[in-house]
Design a protein around this nucleic acid. Structure first.
Lengths: 158, 158
DNA sequence: AGCGGTCGATTGAAGCTTCAACTGAGTGTG
DNA sequence: CACACTCAGTTGAAGCTTCAATCGACCGCT
């Protein structure tokens, strides 16, 4: 039982602000997309990721990773997208285990329609208040934390 | 219909990383708290906020604001906390509209028990990978974005 | 005092996410 | 070839959040 290392004052201030961002930013974007495009943020990201692929398709596993979601969640999301015919499931011919999500023409259209509003929202909330230097610093810092979030299924402390 | 201002490459990189943090960090902390203390992150924050008050009580409205949650959500959270006797609701004698959430002795105990693990998780994920300068930059940048998230119920773009 | 408007809070339904259990396909080791 | 193991994906239940509707209390005018 080692002594608890609490946060320093500086760390506490930084953490409070980061926590506010981390808790409010998703809610804000969620609301904008839901209101203007009738889709959730995950759904948008899935469509966007698919549209970036040359053939508009990706295995669920990879979609999950790139969208920062669990595979289970992604499966549910794809089901919803499929119901609206924005995406179709297709078996992967090269591997019987994997399922491909394929972007439909309709899906591409709703994405194109939704994108400007979403980008405007992101720009308005995150980039407008930042200087160029801020953006560079943000990239560096978020990268370090994100890297940490990838790796450590390790034991909690130390 | 003005031309869409897409993100620059630099902005895109920063955004991708920020998005990863914003989407994964809450999930990570959520899991840690759920696993080790049987409570959600919001529940923890509510207990923590109450414990910081000299009299261990706060109106729901203020709790909601400080915990970055909607009032509705907070009401549900307090209901759950009340069921476990970690908090009690009490009418505010000075204003018939407001309800006070009051931390119970039990509530304080579970918070004390949960805190070290949570702080360790936060330190491990956000502060360990950061230099001192990073922390200062983070405070500045998160502050700017958080400020933006507070104000603008304004029209979406411009 | 009366009246509309705002404010704090509650509630229930709908929707999304998580978790754990499960299936079926591939891999590798004897 | 068989067995164990891993991997991708699916599914349903439980739980949490959101949204909209609702309520009573307070405020500001007249």
């Amino acid at each position: 039982m080692e002594p608890v290392r609490w946060l320093t004052d500086e760390e506490q201030r930084a953490w409070r602000r980061l926590a506010a961002v981390v808790l409010r930013l998703p809610a804000t974007l969620e609301r904008q997309l839901q209101r203007d495009a009738g889709m959730t943020h995950v759904e948008y990201r899935v469509l966007a990721l698919l549209s970036e692929e040359p053939d508009g398709q990706l295995p669920l596993r990879r979609l999950a990773a790139q969208a920062n979601a669990s595979l289970s969640r992604l499966s549910h999301v794809v089901t919803r997208l499929e119901e609206r015919s924005w995406v179709v499931r297709q078996p992967d011919p090269t591997d019987g285990r994997t399922t491909l999500a394929v972007l439909t023409e309709q899906g591409r259209e709703v994405l194109v329609a939704a994108a400007p509003g979403h980008v405007a929202a992101v720009r308005s909330v995150v980039f407008e208040p930042l200087s160029e230097r801020d953006v560079a610093d943000l990239e560096r810092i978020a990268g370090r934390i994100a890297a940490r979030l990838d790796e450590p299924p390790a034991t909690n402390n130390r």
